[in-house]
Design a protein around this nucleic acid. Sequence first.
DNA 1: AAGTGGTCTAGACCACCGA
DNA 2: CGGTGGTCTAGACCACTTC
Lengths: 246, 246
Amino acid sequence: MTLTHAEAVDDRLPRYHQLRDDLKSRIASGAWHPDEPIPTEAELARTYAVAIGTVRKAVDMLVQEGLLLRSQGRGTYLRRPRFDRSFFRFFRQVDADGVRSVPVSRILSQSCETPCERVSQALALSSGDKVLQLKRRRSMGASSLIYEDIWLPADRFAALQALPLDEFGNLLYPLYEEKCGEIVASARETLTIEPADDVVASELGMEAGKPVVVIERLALGYDQRPIEYRLSRGAAEQFRYQIDIV
Amino acid sequence: MTLTHAEAVDDRLPRYHQLRDDLKSRIASGAWHPDEPIPTEAELARTYAVAIGTVRKAVDMLVQEGLLLRSQGRGTYLRRPRFDRSFFRFFRQVDADGVRSVPVSRILSQSCETPCERVSQALALSSGDKVLQLKRRRSMGASSLIYEDIWLPADRFAALQALPLDEFGNLLYPLYEEKCGEIVASARETLTIEPADDVVASELGMEAGKPVVVIERLALGYDQRPIEYRLSRGAAEQFRYQIDIV
DNA sequence: AAGTGGTCTAGACCACCGA
DNA sequence: CGGTGGTCTAGACCACTTC
């Protein structure tokens, strides 16, 4: 077993486990890009001097954890996060006819601000660092579904400041990647319920004081550095979320 | 490969996959009990006429799915469901001192009823079947946390009807198992948000019309038959739920 | 000491992909 | 066609639990 990257390894751990940790820190250090396959299993077995079955077990774990994606015949790749599990998907996105359709996003404003304490801490900024703040509405037909505040570290997202609001498109993360080279690798979402304040109520076309679901999201890169902090709000009435317990 | 139980198998599927399906239907048919180990890997390999590595892969999948639990040196067991993932755990259970403590359950009433349509359908009852209905409060110190309606098929839970309310204890599922032989193997929970009606508001000590989180739970046995249907409500203000997206 | 699951190896062959 | 991951096998040895 010849490790290439990990700092400190516990020799008592199984090899596949050490190997998994080593691959994980290579991912975190940006060794690979999601568009290119990582080394083949045979090559990993050679460079780490272990049997191919051991490599397969280590890769299996990382696939299980959601970091890697195997594709028979092609190779194994870094995985982009799957936002189909996000809370957003659980606002009932059905229009009047009962037809499920895709909501449309629109950026309402963009500005460069001094962050409040909460945002500064979430994004792990130094004092003096600025943030780029976006306000955004996602709507379905005529009715607003979700109202969002989005904060980005201004220095790493300078390229967005020059962009006209109507060129942001429906999806932000591909834009981050294309314009700023920032790839979102994972996120943590927290759901709470609050009464709507006047701003949110008017944006969502509801009565102030009625409950809204607040989704707080912190998006991280492969190196676990914060990339984006976001607060999204939608009418609680339209929210329905399901889990299976086994 | 000699399957023992599965009805129709697709020969094109990998053996470990067929084996997994076969084990799964043996579990559903009640072949094993969570307190006794299932056959050893070596024995499964012999009876199914496959290599032990193939058995391991099939068992790995079932462990991953949460149905089995391995214990080195002891054996492999049916797993009881892990309710630590349940929505319930996400009501902030801290008392005035900020100390996290365990809520206390109390059964408020018990009665034998004709079920409403919603309950009847959830429990897959025939017309004429009765339900045993429990009302229950979980509280922390002086304050109520959660108010619950619980419905059980009356015929399978007859043993509970004779039980005094103060002998139900804190946990229901072990009671179901001990008194009625009904083992909960999995559950599905759905979260919605509603305004509190008068009954719920008074039970939870809050103002009517304020939002409550409603958790609907359908608990199933290993054979996927419904065992219990439950509606639980707690003040939305105290709810906070988190997921990781990778 | 006997029996269980856990680790690791080595090799054969299959299924799929892209050039 | 060559290269990738996927399946399956067989066997050696280790670590843990129970008696």
